[in-house]
Design a protein around this nucleic acid. Structure first.
Lengths: 157, 157
DNA sequence: GGTGAAAGAAGGAAGAG
DNA sequence: CTCTTCCTTCTTTCACC
């Protein structure tokens, strides 16, 4: 993991479908070593995957978050069990503090939302939930003009 | 937007780097119409982009969410202004209810986290913040075994 | 939506620094 | 040990049916 790897990661975060040859050109290498670096990062788990960012509303779906508070004796790792039981859950985050976790899911309607929230409660693992319905989303990685380095302003703490 | 488009979306969500030829094979079409459909969805804004999912901890970064409550007179669309002023912000979500928004960002350290939270407060747009530090993440789209259709359990409300 | 040809990208092998 | 340069194979893209 050197600076070149981090540059490659930034470019892939901005556009996961960017050809290796273009990445190579931007970081000042030829294509072969870039491909090898990407393969290495995929194998080592630094890169967990590539995904398309879809405007849920244009597919007629609702994007929502549910904060969950686990029951006293529940290990935070059991949040995975909720995701397993509720197939609408797309992502979860284990949180240090309050709440204990954040679930993100997509539903087709408000009725469907209700049934998903109830399914989460029915797992018996959660002491309480609070659901946040997303009205709009924005992502720097895919925003226009965001074409590389300016996406990582992590240099100035 | 027909069922074929939705299948293609599912496959791209699961693996944005999947070759068009393989998508074509899975949905039972040839490569050319699949490429046309993807291009159309990109142009119409259904597909907003493609991104790599990176294990932040392996890059030595902290992933965090901050719930924000806006000051009384602030339009929810001004959350965009916060993202513009605080370059560490990677994503934001406009929420219906309480809180008004959710910001997601990456930082290098706890000190850096503090400075970002303060930068958010300093915008003058927020009445309050609550920050959630992510300990672990999971994403169905990139989870092993998630190879297509079973990711969309949206059929049974 | 399918087909076929041209342009381009990916992956592998050999060699230079 | 890592980058570069080819070379082959596969993919994408564009014409047109």
């Amino acid at each position: 993991m050197d600076d070149l790897d981090r540059e490659i990661l930034d470019l892939l975060r901005a556009n996961a479908r960017m050809p290796t040859s273009e990445i190579a050109q931007r970081v000042g290498l030829s294509a072969a070593p870039v491909a090898r670096r990407i393969a290495r990062m995929e194998a080592s788990g630094v890169i967990k995957g590539y995904t398309a960012i879809v405007a849920d509303s244009s597919v007629g779906e609702i994007d929502a978050f549910t904060e969950i508070r686990l029951t006293g004796q529940t290990d935070t790792r059991e949040i995975e069990e909720i995701a397993r039981q509720v197939p609408e859950v797309q992502q979860f985050f284990t949180i240090s503090g309050d709440p204990d976790g954040l679930l993100r899911f997509r539903v087709r309607s408000v009725e469907h939302l209700q049934s998903v929230v109830n399914a989460i409660r029915r797992t018996g693992l959660v002491a309480g939930t609070k659901t946040l319905i997303v009205m709009s989303t924005w992502d720097r990685a895919t925003d226009v003009g965001g074409s590389g380095r300016e996406q990582r302003a992590l240099d100035a703490p």
